[in-house]
Amino acid sequence: MTECRVQIEKVEKTFRDFWGRARVRAVRGVSFDVAAGEVFGLLGPNGSGKSTLMKMMLGLLRPTAGQIRVLGQSPDTTAIRARIGYMPEESSLYPFLTAEETLDFFGQLFGLEAAERARRVEELLAMTGLAHARCRRVGEFSKGMARRVCLAQTLINDPDLILLDEPTAGLDPVGSRQVKEMIRALAQRGRTVILSSHLLADVEDVCDRIAILYHGLLCALGCVNDLLEEHGQIRILLPALDPAVREESLEWLRRRTGAVPLWEHPRKDLETVFLETIRHAPPPPEGASGAAVEEEAPLAPFLKGKGESAPP
């Protein structure tokens, strides 16, 4: 049986005003489990309770009712947070620290030795394409670059459970693709990832299961494929046909099934077109300020597990 990493049982969260009166019911009786190695998506419009639920999993907010178990313990247990990585919706970093100092500081909070910290910082800066901007203050970064630093700090402790709140918000399509590939790679190595987003395409690309929240209520829960598959229809992909052959085939199908078949040329998605354009663009000039765009950004070696990690 697969180990359960997160258990949410009938959780409610009500925010109160100064006088203790109920102001907003952000989460209403939500229950679900997340298994080890699973990529679980929390979907919903703004204000549906996704971030609130994540903050309750981290012990930053306390549930009004219900129970939350994270890695088998209460989220208030300080020790289990050493096994969790969290990327908040807003980057919330110290603006006067450089990218390198920021990662080193967060590494210290996990009690990592100086040499190990230095190695991980180096690898994470390379992974997020920020090696050239290591000495720049985070306050000077664009939103996307700050998101990359925030992502790097999430992974500094090589966490078992990773909570990502809108991880691709503010990232360019290349960064967004890298984050999605990284999430899949981490899940393959047994890490559990819970991400919240209202970018449906991102969730569809990486998640095994999703929960859809609306006004704090859990409206749907299940495997992405099960929820998306339309069992009443099929699509047949063929090489482009001669118009006469195509019409003949459609006519045959019409006669044989009684349905009206439709045909269209398949479309590339915009992300693929964008990435192809970037791939063929001239190299950046000397002193360019943005994040380095490498489509095949490697996963930091320390995140690949003990067997695959390069020695310090």
Binding site: T78, R81, A82, F110
Partner: peptide, 9 residues
């Protein structure tokens, strides 16, 4: 919040 979701009391 970012610091207190680390092992910091």
């Amino acid at each position: 919040g970012l610091i207190l979701c680390k092992p910091v009391r």
